[in-house]
Design a protein around this nucleic acid. Structure first.
Lengths: 209, 209
DNA sequence: GTCTATAGTCAGATAGAC
DNA sequence: GTCTATCTGACTATAGAC
């Protein structure tokens, strides 16, 4: 308090990531810039380069943070959904949509961007965590004998449907008011999907000439 | 051929839109610029402004073109899918994914961007055509008594799932080789979704304690 | 209708003061 | 660790020659 007139953050790096995520959420990847993040964080445009070598590194850190948040949220949503394995999986779709609505569209753009070299691995690691959560839930919702490939198939379909649902909500470009209605619809759609999938696996292979 | 050493396109406007779509497909919205489109089209960076008042207008024209293409493709896919209404609807998911794979990721970014004022209507008009195709197919796949709201719900879920599936394919950021396998998976997922939906509408409300 | 040239803006990144 | 100042490069858009 006594030493300096210019403020120094205890942890500017953390603040930059938080503001970066917020900026992405508001403006999307196209509106993202190191300078803007710096301004939001209350520091000069040069300051971030003390913590991140370049734009890509900051972007990757933001992406990793989003994935980490999502993995936590989805896991918690599953826990709160009770014992039924189908409901547990379906609940993650709702949590995903709620997160996307809270954080607006920016999330999706992280999926769009492909990170190069070293950043790629950082992001992938967090992305992997999210997939692990879903794989476990999907495996419990499917018959024990289901192959990993089939489980992965369902996870992929499940995740991409939730992602698509959340993203398209913003294309209408009205800020959706009735969040919980959309969440409920996403959960219902996910439930339908899993049940349809189960029927295909279980049902008698309908006649193929 | 005799009058000019500098080439003049018969229809530069059309070429610009084509190249704009291609650029979006390759680089996404973040990589889109009037200058790049001009270079791709083999003209100076000023030339596009003779045909489009500003960047937004060119972008809107590209978006409208994509929607128009998609609507045609989806309608044709439904026709070729035979008489079963569920299969006809499911086939559009396959066509969507195939189009997205052919044109890489950029399509999605058009969904992301919101166009202002006059451009908005142009794009919406084409977007509407696509929705009309899907609404018709969905209405035929559902019981005749289904309300329009419920039909719209299914269309929304159906479209967003196809959109999400196609988009996430590129996040792995390897150019997916086995296009037809992905198309087939998207169709299967769409079929599962519709069947699950039908069961929810028709089925006895499974016991709720 | 397309060109060259240019004005103005903004972002990425670096250098050196404190 | 953060600042100010600055360089470089890319993009939008306009003006005027051909």
């Amino acid at each position: 308090m006594s030493r300096r007139s210019t403020y120094h953050h205890g942890d500017l790096r953390t603040v930059l990531v938080r503001e970066g995520v917020a900026l992405l959420a508001e403006s999307g990847l196209a509106g993202f810039s190191v300078a803007k993040v710096a301004t939001r964080a209350g520091v000069s445009s040069a300051a971030p380069y003390r913590h991140f070598p370049d734009r890509e590194a900051l972007l990757a850190a933001c992406a990793a943070a989003v994935f980490a948040d999502l993995a936590d949220l989805l896991a918690r949503a599953a826990e709160e959904a009770g014992p039924d394995p189908v409901e547990r999986l379906a609940a993650t779709a709702g949590a995903y949509v709620r997160y996307a609505l809270d954080h607006r569209a920016g999330i999706d753009l992280l999926y769009t961007h492909d990170f190069a070299g070293p950043h790629r691995d950082t992001v992938r690691e967090q992305s992997r965590r999210l997939m692990d959560v879903l794989m476990t839930l999907a495996a419990e919702a499917l018959p024990a004998a289901t192959s990993w490939t089939d489980v992965a198939d369902l996870v992929y379909v499940h995740l991409s449907a939730a992602y698509g649902y959340a993203t398209l909500l913003f294309k209408g470009s009205r800020p959706p008011r009735n969040v919980e209605a959309h969440v409920a619809r996403a959960v219902a759609a996910a439930r339908d999907q899993v049940i349809g999938h189960l029927m295909r696996l279980a049902g008698p292979p309908t006649v193929r000439p």
